[in-house]
């Protein structure tokens, strides 16, 4: 077992983990943050996408020990008391989800896209989301939701990283 200390969604945790434990399993099983899901095990689907120090990573491809001393934001850390994150709001408004399984990862990646391209073209959105699979929506409304969110203030920001700052 290895001791790690990590900030997740603004709160600090210290836990003993097996060196082989994947970050996604640490989040889900140790912390009970089951909002981040597993879709493929091979880093292709992006359902498990979270932010590590503000950049998107696939948490099935990161070991829990690798995040020792770092800061993780999951889908559960986006909404604030003031309401949903603009990206969450936009996904709802544009019907950018159906079964919702890819949604946590898709939203985390979409925010990352806007961090890179604050005013993205359709192509930048589509290429930016290449790495996140959705089997329900055909991406039609996802692309629209991301484009619309780009126009909303604060869509690229993640509140909990402010907490950590």
């Amino acid at each position: 077992m290895t001791r790690i200390t990590v900030t997740v969604d603004g709160a600090k945790y210290s836990d003993d983990v097996e060196p082989r434990t994947l970050l996604v399993h640490y989040l889900r099983e140790t912390l009970g943050k089951v909002g981040t899901v597993v879709g493929c095990d091979t880093s292709n689907c992006g359902a498990c996408t979270v932010h590590l120090d503000g950049r998107s990573v696939k948490s099935c491809n990161v070991l829990a020990v690798q995040v020792d001393g770092h800061e993780v934001t999951t889908i559960e850390g986006l909404a604030t008391e003031a309401g949903l994150h603009p990206m969450q709001e936009s996904f709802h408004e544009h019907h950018a989800l159906q079964c919702g399984y890819c949604t946590p990862g898709m939203i985390m990646q979409a925010i990352d896209v806007l961090n890179t391209h604050p005013d993205p073209t359709e192509e930048q959105i589509r290429l930016g989301l290449e790495g996140n699979l959705c089997r329900c929506t055909g991406y039609h409304n996802i692309v629209k939701a991301v484009a619309a969110a780009a126009k909303a203030p604060g869509a690229a920001a993640v509140s909990s990283s402010k907490v950590g700052d």
Partner: peptide
């Protein structure tokens, strides 16, 4: 009409099979 399912699903509060029974 916008979907009733969305608020829980966009916030990570959906509950899929593997989210149950920790």
């Amino acid at each position: 009409v916008q979907r009733r399912e969305d608020p829980r699903l966009v916030t990570g509060n959906g509950r899929y099979l593997d989210d149950l029974g920790r």
